Simulated scan of single mutants.
Amino acid sequence: MIELPMPVREAFDATNAGDLERFTAAFADDGVLDDWGREFRGRDEIARWSREESIGVHQTFEVTESRVIGDDVIVTADVGGEGFNGPSTFTFRLDADGRHIERMAITA
């Protein structure tokens, strides 16, 4: 199993389990999710995004690689489900205490 910081692992595990509340709890209260330039701020907007484009379409993630560059945790995962399918890159920045995701950006 690829080692990931706790909130990053929690976000992937929660999505795979279809657990929206657990997914949004991995984010800081004022966290940001950037999906190819579309930003969703705060847990309510992140939950809306997930209902429409992630957990709501039964998205799954299989992490294939992880690396740390500076303050960023960069994860490559194969995405499955009823929406987008294929490899994606996720760049995470954690809050100061490392307990929550401050920013998650999804790119190619």
Rank of each mutant, 00 (worst) to 15 (best):
D72N: 12
G31C: 12
V75Q: 03
R67H: 14
R41H: 15
D72Y: 11
G31H: 12
L20M: 06
I69H: 10
E62M: 11
D35W: 02
I74F: 14
V32K: 07
E52A: 06
E53T: 02
A77T: 08
G37F: 03
A77M: 11
G70F: 07
A25H: 00
L20S: 04
F23K: 02
L33G: 01
I69Y: 09
D34M: 12
V57F: 09
E39K: 15
I46W: 04
R48M: 03
D19E: 07
R41Y: 09
F40L: 00
I55A: 02
D30P: 14
G37P: 01
T76H: 09
F40H: 02
E62P: 12
E21N: 13
D44M: 08
L33T: 04
R38L: 02
I74V: 15
T64R: 10
E62C: 13
R41D: 10
G31I: 08
D19I: 07
T76I: 10
I74R: 15
A28F: 07
I55K: 01
G42Y: 13
T24C: 06
F61D: 06
F23A: 03
G56P: 06
E52T: 00
D44N: 11
D19N: 14
S66Q: 11
A28I: 09
V57G: 08
V68F: 03
F23C: 01
V57Q: 05
E21F: 05
R48L: 05
R43Q: 13
R38Q: 05
V32L: 09
D72H: 13
A26G: 13
I74G: 10
T64M: 08
T24H: 00
R43H: 06
G70R: 07
T60H: 15
G18Y: 12
D72V: 10
S54K: 03
D30C: 05
G42M: 12
T60D: 15
A28Q: 06
E53K: 06
D34W: 07
E65T: 03
G70K: 10
V32T: 08
D19F: 01
F27H: 05
I46D: 05
F23Y: 12
D35S: 04
I69L: 14
F27T: 09
G18N: 09
D19R: 07
E65F: 09
F27E: 05
G70L: 06
G42E: 12
A77Q: 07
D30K: 08
I55S: 01
A47F: 00
F23E: 01
V68I: 14
S54G: 15
A47R: 02
A77S: 12
S54F: 08
W36E: 11
T24A: 10
G37S: 02
D34N: 14
G56Y: 00
S66N: 06
S54T: 07
R67Q: 14
I55Q: 01
D44Q: 15
A25T: 03
E39L: 15
I55T: 03
D72W: 10
D35Q: 02
A28M: 13
V75T: 05
